[in-house]
Design a protein around this nucleic acid. Structure first.
Lengths: 196, 196
DNA sequence: GCCGGACTTCGATGTTCATCTAATTAGATG
DNA sequence: CATCTAATTAGATGAACATCGAAGTCCGGC
C-alpha cells in the first residue's frame, strides 16, 4: 500500500494540536473519563468531546460506557500501525512518485506553453529540466526505425527552432539520438525510444 | 530527551497539509526549483515559497542558489531524526507522564473544591478516582508511626464527614491503612505512606 | 545600466478549526 | 417522575493559516 496522501494528512492533522496530543498522552497511560481529561488539560468538557470525536474517527481511541460516564482509552496498536505505515522507509518518497507521475505532464505542458508559439520554439530556456521538455518534443518529431542524413535532420528541426545545430547536439548529448559509425547519419536511439 | 510537546506539535503541524506533503514528496525524489514545484503541485510560486519557508524553519529542507534559481532539497536525515524522536518507544506515554505530573495536583484541587466545604466533605463522589482524592485527604489527617483505636479513628474522621464507617473501610480497602493482627487497632500502612 | 526572469515579501481574503456557552440527551438516584 | 450528573450537540467567536495578486529584491544577459 503506497500510503494515500489524504490518509497521511489526516493522521498528521489529528496530532497537530497541543491539546489533542496531551489527551493522547494521558490516554496512553490509562483510561480516562471526559471530565478527568477536561480537568487535566484545562479545557471545558465540550472541547474534550470535540477532540475525542476526532481521535475516534481515526480509530485512535475507543470508548467504554459505565453508567453515564464514558471511559476512553488509546488504541495503541492503531496508533503504532498508522505511525509505522506513515513513516516507514520510503513512505515519503513514494508520495513523490505519486505526485510526480500525476503532474509531470502538466509541467511539460506549461513549459511548452511558455517557450513555444504554435509549433515553434520561440526561445530555449536556460534551466536544464525545462530544456529537456523541449528537446523531448523535438525528438518526438522524428520517426523511429529510420535514419536521417544531416540535411534531413535540419529539415525536421529548423521549422521548429532556428538554432537547429544546438538542438541536434542536445539530442545526441542526451542520448535520444545517435550517429552511425561513419558519423554521417542520425537516427533515434532504439533503446530509449520508450522514454519519448 | 522526553520529546517536548511543542516540538511534536510543530512537526505534525508542518506535515499536516496536503500541498506541503506533496512538496516534501517531490523533494524526497530529487532537488527542485520553486517554479517546478509550483507547476507540479498546481499552486502559485508565492504559495510554494510560503510552504518552503515553513519547512526550512524546521530544518526539513535546505537551499542551494544557482543564479537566480533556488534549488531546494529534502534533509532526509533531519526528517528521519525527527520522526524517530517522535515515535521512539514510549514517546506518547512519556507525554502522558509529563502532563499528568503537571496537572494531577490541579485535578485533586478541583475535586476537593467540588466535594468539600472548608475542612468537611459534603458528599462522597461516585467515581472511583474522585473518591480516591478525598480518601487520600482523610488519610493525610492521620499521623504515621502511631496506632489508633477504633474510637480514635472515628474521632479523626467524623469531623470531616458523617459517614466515618464508609471512609474507614475505604482506607483499609485501598491499603493506606492497616489493622493489627488482633483487629483492634489501626495505623497508616508504613509501606505506602510515601504515596500520601 | 537597464530588462527579464526567479524568487520572496506584503497585504488581503476566505476557510478551517479550537474553544467557549447554552441547550439537549441519556443514566442514575431518591 | 423530578432531579442531578456526565456527556454530546449546536451555534458563535476568534485565531491561525493557505492562497492569491501585487510589489519588491536579486541575479544574469544584452
Amino acid at each position: 500500500m503506497p500510503a494515500e496522501i489524504a490518509t497521511l494528512v489526516a493522521f498528521f492533522k489529528v496530532l497537530a494540536d497541543a491539546t489533542r496530543l496531551r489527551i493522547v498522552g494521558l490516554l496512553a497511560v490509562e483510561e480516562r473519563s471526559v471530565d478527568e481529561l477536561a480537568t487535566l488539560v484545562e479545557v471545558r468538557p465540550p472541547t474534550v468531546s470535540h477532540h475525542l470525536s476526532k481521535l475516534k474517527k481515526l480509530g485512535l481511541v475507543s470508548v467504554r460506557s459505565e453508567g453515564s460516564t464514558r471511559w476512553y482509552r488509546l488504541e495503541i496498536e492503531a496508533v503504532e500501525r498508522l505511525a509505522r505505515e506513515v513513516l516507514a522507509g520510503e513512505g515519503l518518497t513514494s508520495i513523490g512518485d505519486e505526485v510526480e507521475a500525476a503532474a509531470e505532464d502538466a509541467y511539460a505542458l506549461k513549459v511548452m506553453q511558455t517557450f513555444m508559439e504554435g509549433d515553434r520554439i520561440t526561445q530555449l530556456p536556460r534551466q536544464w529540466r525545462k530544456k529537456m521538455v523541449l528537446v523531448r518534443y523535438v525528438a518526438q518529431q522524428f520517426e523511429p526505425d529510420r535514419t536521417y542524413t544531416e540535411p534531413e535532420v535540419k529539415a525536421v528541426i529548423a521549422p521548429i527552432h532556428a538554432d537547429h545545430v544546438t538542438l541536434r547536439r542536445l539530442l545526441v548529448d542526451v542520448g535520444w539520438m545517435v550517429r552511425d559509425k561513419a558519423g554521417r547519419e542520425y537516427r533515434l536511439n532504439p533503446e530509449r525510444v520508450a522514454e519519448l
